[in-house]
Design a binder for these strands. Structure first.
Lengths: 332, 332
DNA sequence: TTGTAAGCGTTATCAA
DNA sequence: TTGATAACGCTTACAA
């Protein structure tokens, strides 16, 4: 790789002149600027990023720590983060915790050595269940800005970007009750132990209570044969006339199982699930979903973090990104 | 952040002594090592990564350039890359080309300034269709190692990790013909313009030819209503007794549509699709899939690239990661 | 066993 | 308008 020194030697001028010329400093004459730029172009000179980082003590890099990326929600958030980071000339270093507390701790620790200017993180399932989050506070105490999204820790004070978990499921359930006159609404879930899962279930329950209906929650996160479990429930409870799923899998399974019991969707049973870009393609009839704006969550996260990095007097904020009920064909 | 200089001053010794002590150099006495380590521990000293990178002229960072991460194949590959990179003490900087040539060029260009030691890349759809890949050769000519996976460019000489696209579909089709005696096998695809798509289609065609059957290919990448398209085909061709999908979407849609035409799966029609971890959950009956070992592809890619980075006399290799036919319930 | 000094590639200050 | 020099934080000959 070509360096300033090499350019300087070839042109018989000093390194600092070359540097200034390339940075279009007003101190430098037009002619030398031209000479320098021509040679730089010719030799395909690129300022060494690492040297700049050392000098400026900033990396223009964000550490992104995700529980997983095979869950389409986090994949789409990552998409939003990457696009917006790039737009702002930031790189992202991605670490996956695989839902493990230890891996999350290690990643934060490893990157807290000047590798990144700040972090965007959704905490691991394990960290959340065990309520172990001291490592995140350590980072914050070291003056490295942290932004948490989706899976947040209430006890930690930092910027947050969250989904309207309670509200969106509340409204989805209300839709089934008020617009569709459904009376026997089942909730299915494979994320009931996560903070977001709990909030969503509460949204469902509030709506059910308000209408004086009976709450029916099928918790499946530890169940082996989810299909069978749902199928059996529907067999045993043939009065079921609507299903709400709070994740991106069990809604589709519910549709398949309801059809298997001979029910027509949406005539006999309405189904609303959670989902993202392609989810609706994967069921027939196309599933109605609470569409989490995952891309926007990533986008907002980057914006808020960069604002924190740049402004002196940044004040901590929590942004709620509203979801959208996207009706497909599994509702009337 | 604590620096060597600060430690040195507090201990009244020189910076180099501190550095050596922390690196457990045999030059240093046990007592000073202890003193240094204690203070370092106390002040939570971490060697500045950027300074080390500048000094050593290596970043221990891999640039990973993916077309997208919402496609579960690439998500799973990323998972494999991240896990294995971390295991080898490498970080990854992730860029998404969004299937765009320009973005791919920009990312490569931007990271070719010392930010990374090497690249892992799957080329964008656009780059592949337009056959524009000079930017990749530019990087290689700059002596930055590149590894390509899945979507590879034959004309470029570098390490490659690929799937057995031809062979896996050849065998899947053969299974339907020989084991299940199917005679009217439809291929559905939404990736027919990609190199991998073409190979897979060829695998199907070879198998069909060998058995003297008729080839039926439904190309859907530019079709709006995929469901309807498949449904109509099945209505018009009721003799169809098997379907092969070469992507992770259209197989599931095919199952749903076949059921809609009143066919029983797998009695009347067998279906084999492509898929990954969760794919089988999303259809009923559970779809049989060609399971691409995406995680392993990521794993192998990292191994091969790091080998290239470390060894002097690395010779270019292409590794084929075999897929596995994972029978579900959509075949007999 | 410890310390001095040079150097990685930049940028910035100050002097010429 | 240009150049010499120091500095960012670290490692490593080499000198003491």
């Amino acid at each position: 790789m070509t360096t300033l020194k090499e350019l300087a030697k070839l042109l018989n001028i000093s390194v600092s002149t070359v540097s200034k010329a390339l940075n279009d400093s007003h101190e430098i004459s037009a002619t030398t600027k031209r000479r320098v730029n021509e040679l730089a172009e010719k030799l395909n000179y690129k300022p060494n990023r690492i040297a700049q980082q050392l000098k400026s003590n900033t990396t223009k890099t964000i550490g992104v720590i995700l529980p997983t990326v095979t869950n389409p929600f986090f994949a789409e958030v990552l998409h939003g983060i990457e696009t917006n980071a790039t737009k702002n000339k930031y790189d992202i270093i991605v670490c996956l915790s695989d839902e493990s507390l230890t891996k999350e701790q290690r990643s934060l620790e490893l990157l807290s050595n000047g590798s990144v200017d700040g972090f965007i993180i959704a905490v691991a399932r394990e960290s959340q269940v065990l309520e172990q989050t001291a490592h995140i506070n350590t980072v914050i105490n070291n003056k490295i800005p942290v932004l948490m999204f989706d899976r947040v820790v209430n006890e930690i004070t930092c910027d947050k970007v969250v989904v309207d978990d309670f509200q969106s499921v509340f409204e989805a359930t209300e839709y089934l009750i008020k617009t569709e006159q459904r009376k026997h609404i089942l909730l299915v879930s494979n994320i009931e132990e996560l903070s977001v899962g709990k909030l969503r279930i509460k949204g469902y329950q509030k709506s059910i209570e308000d209408a004086n209906l009976k709450s029916n929650v099928l918790k499946l996160s530890k169940v082996d044969d989810v299909e069978k479990h749902i199928y059996n429930y529907l067999q045993d409870n043939p009065e079921t006339d609507a299903i709400v799923s709070i994740d991106h899998i069990t809604g589709i399974i519910a549709i398949n199982m309801a059809k298997k019991t001979g029910k027509n969707i949406p005539k006999d049973i309405s189904v609303i699930g959670f989902g993202y870009e392609h989810t609706q393609l994967l069921s027939s009839p196309k599933i109605s979903i609470v569409h989490q704006k995952a891309y926007e969550i990533g986008e907002m996260s980057v914006k808020l973090l960069i604002d924190n990095l740049k402004s002196e007097d940044h004040k901590v904020k929590t942004i709620v990104v509203p979801s959208e009920l996207k009706l497909g064909e599994s509702t009337k």
